[in-house]
Nucleic acid binder design. Sequence first.
DNA 1: ATAGGGTTAG
Length: 751
Amino acid sequence: MLWWARRFRDQQAHKALISFLYKQFTTQLAIGVHQSSAHQASSLFPLLEACHRSKSIYEAKKIHQYLLTNNTHIEERWQLFEKLAQVYIACDLVGLARRVFDEIPKPSVILWNLMIRAYAWNGPFQEAIDLYHGMLNAGVRPTKFTFPFVLKACSGLQDVEVGQEIHEQKGTCPNSSTIVAVLPTVAQANALSQGKAIHGYSVRRNFCNDVVLGTGLLDMYAKCQCISYARRIFDILDVRNEICWSAMIGAYVMCDSMRDALALFVEMVCKSGMKPTPVTLGSILRASAKLNDLSIGRQVHCYAIKSGFELDTMVGNTLLSMYAKCGNIDNAARFFAKMMSKDTVSYSAIISGCVQNGYAEEGLLKFHQMQLSGIEPDVPTMVSVLPACSHLAARQHGACAHGYSIVHGFAIDSLISNALIDMYSKCGNLNFARKVFDMMYVRDIISWNAMIVGYGIHGLGVEALSLFNYMNAAGIKPDDVTFIGLLSACSHSGLVTEGKHWFYAMSQNFNIIPRMEHYICMADLLGRAGLLDEAHIFIQRMPFEADVRVWGSLLAACRIHNNIELGEEVSKKIQGLGPEGTGNFVLLSNIYSAVGKWDDAANVRIMQKNQGFKKSPGCSWVEVNGVIHGFVGGDQSHPQSTQIHEKLEELLVGMKRLGYHAESGFVLQDVEEEEKERILLYHSEKLAIAFGILSLSPRKPILVTKNLRVCGDCHAAIKLISLVTKRRITVRDTSRFHHFTDGICNCGDFW
DNA sequence: ATAGGGTTAG
């Protein structure tokens, strides 16, 4: 009967055959033919063979069941088990295959190899290596097929040493498929010298004209950031297929040479006449995302639609991510909505896209939608969700995400831990952040940076510095971000001497050239401390032209210290730099108001209006029982709006008794004094706090986040509210935390 | 043999 199975290679025919065989088989059972065991193997073998070819799990399981409940001839029994294990492997049922495999006393080399391959492809990789050792212990000699699989498992484990050991043990000359299998390991370990040795060996053995090997080699070089070597291999190859072209284009993207990637893509399509594959499109889309070039991305999208690749999930996900990274969140959301096959990657991409574009609430909503749709979150999903919680200071959502990560074994991942450090510190729980940090197995530079930044935004400059010293002692090299965190920490804590010291040390001792961001921190540090002239000179002596943000921080310092002359000068400077200094009009107007120059303040407002600038609306958020409540100034849309307003009026009475008077200089609208008091009273942060007081139990601290810096009147008012209500209130604005207790803020009134 | 989403700073 076997020849039947061999002749029908077409899947449909196999299905038909199976049902034919299966019926025959069950009829035999029914009429008791199975009792003559001599007949069985001949009928079961072709059946299993057919199951194998058409991957028919149901029938295979039936036969399995039959074999377990009936005694077959002992020799044939193991042959049938061998075949059955192969069927299960072919159907990706590795666990079942293993159970059958373990029953067989002396599995054949072929089955050992297949079993190892199954683990090398699907994991757990360690299982493949253990099996390999088991194979040696059982006295079975590995064949040339064994090694590529074991090496692939080593590469999955990112374990070069085991790979090499096995490589040496086998003592034979590696063939080209062995080399191809070991290359990913080399790349992952960034072991360039070993990669070169393998390359040299391939040259000596004349393997280098093999496209498969060449592609593997060029990919290895690219992953080791050796783009010129990769290109040389590409150029030398006689025959190049689309996989090879795609690999080379992807190599350029990996090495941040977007222009070269695009040029090679054009060459591929126009000159060589190759057709791009979904993988090629993916690489080009990642290139346009990195270039922040929406027009290229759009063109690729058009091509993807025409070629039908738009429906490919991988291409779709890259498109989605491209739109999000180019800041076009509307297109990303629209595309996501109409995607036919959304998977974990799609959800992770849309969640991170929302968060990166400032729609963290929407990101959490998408996460919720993901759970409802039954798609399982994985590590990257949670790494996208946690920053959403950070942005919103959503403590309960953050804690849930942490719990979920622990339960699913994600928490040991350093990306998760890093995101957790950031989440806990931005949610005001610095102790938890430190606990996560301390418990980490391997801390990378991001872990240290996140922790230093955490101390900085809580106004704990001394702690930030001591952690930085500890980092140096541990031999971890700080990077440019470390210094941004460190300098801003010094700035918030008024540590001028330390800040100056580290600013100069970073280029002298650490070889890190200060960027614009570092100069912003320094201007901020000096200005905030009242050293306005020094800050001004510092900016003028910068090695490159200061931008709006640098001047803006000096202007903010002028506002704190009420320095009109310098403020006017700086403001002119900012206006000369173009239309970016939107928020700075507010600062200048505030300076005039603060010293009673109302006309000048009004003029600035008129100027602002004439130039068509609009201050972005201030929003504040507070989380109550896991629900995020958002407020804008004067907001009446909240269901409990009336109570909130009443509460604020009530608080106003208490505040006034303690000497509060509304600082109308912070109101930019041209209205009556009493109206100004109303406007200030209904600022978004005050609304959020009032709602927090109403909804949270008196013992609970109130945590509010704001999308702008907290306003001066609110800062003064919240201090009094904390005194009147005897509650701990925390406001996190764009630059730091303000912890209000008993009428005092820990920022020391400099922010 | 190539291959989609992810953490810190601004």
